[in-house]
Simulated scan of single mutants.
Amino acid sequence: MERIEHRACFGGWQDVYRHESKVLGCTMKFAVYLPPQAANGKLPVLYWLSGLTCSEQNFITKAGAQRYAAEHGVVIVAPDTSPRGEQVMDDDGYDLGQGAGFYLNATEQPWATHYRMFDYVADELPALVEAHFPVGDARAISGHSMGGHGALVVALRNPGRYRSVSAFSPIVAPSKVPWGEKAFGAYLGEDRQAWKQWDASELVRSATEKLPLLVDQGGDDEFLDTQLRPQLLQAAAVAAGHPLQLRMRPGYDHSYYFIASFIGEHIAHHAAALHGEAKVHAGVAHEPHDGCGRH
Rank of each mutant, 00 (worst) to 15 (best):
I267A: 03
G143R: 06
D220I: 08
W195T: 00
I141S: 07
A122Y: 00
H6Y: 14
M117Q: 00
Y187L: 10
N158E: 01
G99I: 06
A237P: 06
A236E: 05
D95T: 14
H132A: 11
D15G: 10
T61F: 05
K62W: 02
D137W: 09
V154S: 02
S201Q: 12
F102S: 02
A31Y: 13
V215W: 09
L188P: 01
A106V: 10
M28C: 14
I60D: 04
A273D: 11
G185Q: 02
I76Y: 15
G264L: 04
K196I: 04
F118C: 00
M146H: 04
A112F: 08
G276C: 03
K279F: 08
S145P: 01
L125P: 07
I4P: 11
C292T: 15
R7K: 14
Y17R: 11
V75M: 14
W13L: 13
L104I: 06
M248I: 06
Q193K: 13
S55R: 07
E56T: 08
A140C: 12
D80H: 05
V88I: 07
V121T: 13
Y47N: 15
H269Q: 09
M28H: 09
A278R: 15
Y162F: 15
L49D: 06
Q57C: 11
I259F: 07
Q87P: 05
F184K: 08
R67N: 05
L24G: 00
S82T: 10
H149G: 07
A69H: 06
L125Q: 03
V215I: 14
L232V: 08
C292D: 12
L125E: 05
Y94K: 08
W198G: 04
S142Y: 12
D91R: 02
G150T: 02
P170H: 09
H132V: 08
V32D: 04
Y94T: 09
A194P: 04
H295P: 15
R116D: 11
K196E: 14
R18E: 14
P159W: 01
Q231L: 11
L232R: 11
G251H: 08
S169T: 12
A63K: 03
D191N: 11
P36M: 00
L49C: 10
P134C: 11
A194G: 15
P36D: 00
G148E: 04
I141E: 09
K210P: 07
G264R: 02
L125G: 05
T61H: 07
